[in-house]
Amino acid sequence: MSDILSKLSDCIEFGKINLASPFPPQMKEQEGADELTAKALAQGINPQDVLTQGLMPGMERVGVKFRENKVFVPQVLMSAKAMGTAMLHLKPHFLSGAAKQKGTFIIGTVLGDLHDIGKNLVAMMVEGSGYKVIDLGTDVDAAKFIAALRENPGAVVGLSALLTTTMVNMEKITQEIKQALPDTLVTIGGAPVNNDFCNKIGADNYSSDPQGVVEFLNTKVA
């Protein structure tokens, strides 16, 4: 891997957004994801390589560290911000077809639940792992998920819930999605749910952390 892509990975891993960003302290006054992505593309590095060899490995390392409680939500958000900044440079290449995303992931917090930090983390991590993410927000009903699926055939759905009482809505939404579009893969997550609940409601995967969702997608989609 070229030196610049390796540095780019570090920027994503440690949440170094740009030269002006003081975070992380050990990378102060160094170029960040913003400058390095622009530089890599200007040097003629293939946009797909920038994504898969520069950005994605950094995001994967963050996902693993988050799973292992070595980093916490703010650092993941910093990494996601660095990733988002880099992705702005890649966007024209996605549109032109010079860089391709692995698939589409539709995510939302289920009807009756407004908690969105966990859902946002999953969305950021999945996007940083090379997928197109459609975030439907919070308090989302089955009809909205199904409409998004019809617009994006083959997309995988992620359902999030934090309240014990909205688990019942997760079940209804999963069943309505499966009834309308039987081939759709549904992955669930959130504090009150677990693998047994996943099996009970007929979902395809339960992940206790964002990296688990990425791994599920990489197995089933990529």
Partner: peptide, 13 residues
């Protein structure tokens, strides 16, 4: 809750 301790809170947090 931010994941740190009060004697070790890096910038920009």
């Amino acid at each position: 809750l931010l994941g740190y301790s009060s004697d070790c809170l890096p910038e920009p947090f």
